[in-house]
Design a protein around this nucleic acid. Structure first.
Lengths: 362, 362
DNA sequence: CTGAAAGCGCTTACAG
DNA sequence: CTGAAAGCGCTTACAG
């Protein structure tokens, strides 16, 4: 592969001049510029990004460590992160932690070794020492979706508290009283917060959240199945199960189906995270929708702020309830929080329907 | 960040010795090794992969350019590619082409600039000049899923021909005669082949494939919707629609639902690519399943073969029909190709049920 | 077993 | 406007 030396020789100038042309440095004569450009063209020269990175100490690359690529929510997040990063002139390298702390560590380490300019992390496990080290070592970093409390890193996330209150209100109105939840890992913020919000909302209606109605999941489908099996084995099973992510909802659906039961006739189901498939399940599933595209964009911008020395903003965007039929009929049209069910498929541009975002400088 | 010089100073040896210890070169005295290791530890030193790559001319990184990350089939492929690559000591950088040729070119260029050791490509468009350049320029390369005919690059793919014959046989047995297909882009191999196989299978049953029953899609959901709308507007709509990927099937479902029709009562639906959600749609969808994990592993191994100078194998693994209820009842239990519907959710390890693979040296 | 030195492909003060 | 030279952080013959 041609190097800058070859180009310099071909153009009859020094490598310094070639470099200046490539980086559009102003002080190059038109003639030299033309000859360099011609040489670049005939040799098919492309600058070696590795060498450039070593010299400039920047890679123009962002690392994104997500908890699980197979989770459509994170896939979508990753897609929008790459899009925004590209717009700002960065590439992104994705690391999939698969909800495993040691894999998360592996990716953080690899990314740091590659000297990425900044790191976007959705921690699979808040106790990961490496991630904390990275934060302390001064690598620009932003948490997205999940975060680690007590670490001084900007957080870009969605606040589901109000949407969960809306959900519980909706369920209560439909006459449901025995409400169960499938929780995410207690080691994640989203795992804890969604349960807390659910418990608080139940309390507002004078309902308890008993231990038997708290299933311990890990955000993966199989755990949703297990938790639901346990609910169904109870002397008094819940009337509705709220899965705190879409994969566990899928697992719950499997368990319910395995028992020959029907949703919502025999048991209701709601999920955190809305995905296109929820429109087409049997029945369509009531879900809490996050503004994923905006989250991704805000996260990348916050990270670029840190990298480029500007004061970054933590961002919290509200999630919202989308009512469908999986918790029973009759409440849908009464639910102001539910958006009209316009065709909603991947590839369709999202309407920016979340103008209200709280921002706070860290 | 500490560099190799700092470690050398701390350990009281030369950088050469530090390097030898780091690369487990045999000729280092136990004492020197111990002091270096101690220094590495106290300084929290991590070798700079950028510098190492520049010097060794290898990045231990693979590029993966896929057509669409939001397509669960490719997400799964990417996940298994990363897994196998990691096992072989490589990282992978994913580029999402979003089915756009110019984005594919962008990612190929970026990846080449970063001097990845090899490239795995599922071409969004076979006419991309850059991808061909890359192949000719000598960058180790393997096509996965889709390929470009006439280019001397190993191909790892799934052969759906027999499964499509099985599908058509199944539909014919159920009494369906008016069969339509939603095709992928003619610029892709999978786009063309699936239509060809479908047409051939119809011919075996003495059925024609008329133009009105060929919808032109682009593997994205919205095009599946449009094609289905066109079918439904026909004086004589088809009895069954075969979408040649899962996203277009989702769009078809949207269109059918938008017309107030029911599957399979009013119209049947089948899809290429099986994904967990197809078990939970209303109704569960008959689909053709590719051995994604094996495909991914074979692709990575083939690429590693090219990189490391071994003769690579092209691989073709059979896809298979999974019969569900979306094309009508009564055929399911008669279909030997249909696997038992065991719980099938992401996160569950795949059973290696595709032992028969044809391999051929290129 | 060890170190001094060259060099990977760039960028960028510095001097002219 | 231009080029010679230093240097980014490594690895690896080469000589001892």
């Amino acid at each position: 592969m041609a190097s800058i030396k070859d180009v310099a020789a071909e153009a009859g100038v020094s490598v310094a001049t070639v470099s200046r042309v490539l980086n559009s440095h102003p002080s190059v004569s038109p003639g030299a510029r033309a000859r360099v450009l011609a040489a670049v063209d005939t040799l098919g020269y492309r600058p070696n990004a590795v060498a450039r990175s070593l010299r400039t100490d920047q890679t123009r690359t962002l690392g994104l460590v997500i908890s699980d690529v197979l989770n459509p929510y994170f896939t979508e997040l990753a897609r929008f992160v790459e899009e925004e990063a590209r717009a700002l002139g960065y590439s992104v390298i994705i690391g999939n932690a698969d909800e495993r702390p040691e894999l998360q560590d592996h990716h953080v380490r690899t990314l740091l070794d590659r000297r990425i300019d900044g790191l976007l992390v959705s921690p699979a496990d808040g106790r990961s020492p490496l991630t904390l080290d990275a934060a302390r070592s001064g690598t620009p970093m932003v948490f997205v979706d999940r975060w680690v409390p007590g670490v001084d890193v900007p957080v870009v996330r969605s606040d589901g508290r109000q949407a969960i209150r809306d959900l519980v209100g909706h369920l209560h109105r439909l006459g449901h009283r025995r409400l169960a939840i499938i929780a995410g890992p207690a080691a994640t913020t989203t795992g804890r917060e969604r349960v807390d919000a659910f418990r608080d909302a139940l309390r507002e209606h004078g309902l308890p959240l008993i231990d038997a109605y708290i299933g311990q999941g890990d955000f993966q489908a199989e755990s949703g199945r297990r938790a639901t099996e346990a609910f169904l084995a109870l002397a008094e099973p819940p009337e509705v199960v709220f899965a705190t992510d879409n994969l566990m909802a899928l697992g719950a659906l499997d368990a319910i189906r395995g028992h020959g039961l029907r949703v919502p006739r025999d048991i209701g189901l709601a999920a955190f995270d809305d995905i296109p498939w929820f429109l087409h399940t049997d029945p369509p599933i009531t879900a809490i929708s996050q503004p994923t595209a905006e989250l991704a964009r805000a996260a990348v911008r916050a990270l670029a702020d840190v990298i480029e020395g500007r004061p970054p903003s933590s961002v919290s965007l509200p999630a919202r309830l989308v009512v469908r039929r999986s918790c029973g009929e009759g409440g849908a049209h009464a639910e102001s929080a539910g958006r009209p069910e316009a065709p909603d498929v991947p590839g369709t541009p999202e309407t920016p329907d979340h103008p209200a975002s709280q921002r706070s400088n860290l």
